[in-house]
């Protein structure tokens, strides 16, 4: 099954982390992608900081900022292909960024069977 892992964080909480620790985690993240290459079908993207977000809302209104008001923001995403939810959880738990406060990974199954829309 395919799942999207959405890597989220709270920028305010991450602001308190030292540059050294941040760099150390980034090194681990690089290694994580290498190690899990076989189940990552699309490495996805790392996003620019949330300050760069622009949102188009219902009615065509363009606003400055992310789609919701939550403190947590999406920092990036990847697509994985693993047998089931337990495997997805197991993999998500190894996401190195989780060492830092305010970080979370949301797991969302992807729609793969479009026959229901036919």
């Amino acid at each position: 099954m395919k799942y999207v892992l959405m890597f989220t964080h709270d920028p305010a909480q991450l602001a308190g982390v030292s540059e050294e620790d941040t760099q150390a985690v980034y090194g681990k993240i690089y290694a994580w992608f290498q190690e899990n290459a076989s189940v990552i079908t699309d490495s996805g993207a790392e996003l620019q900081p949330v300050e760069t977000a622009t949102t188009v809302k219902h009615g065509g209104v363009v606003v400055d900022g992310p789609f919701n008001e939550a403190k947590e923001v999406v920092g990036g995403f990847s697509v994985i292909d693993v047998p089931d939810m337990d495997a997805a959880i197991t993999l998500a738990k190894t996401w190195p960024h989780l060492e830092l406060p305010g970080v979370a990974v949301e797991i969302r199954p992807m729609v793969e069977d479009y026959s229901q829309f036919e």
Partner: peptide, 12 residues
């Protein structure tokens, strides 16, 4: 069904 929770005794 949608999230792919399998019927199994988990490894963990």
């Amino acid at each position: 069904v949608a999230a792919g929770i399998d019927l199994k005794v988990p490894e963990a």
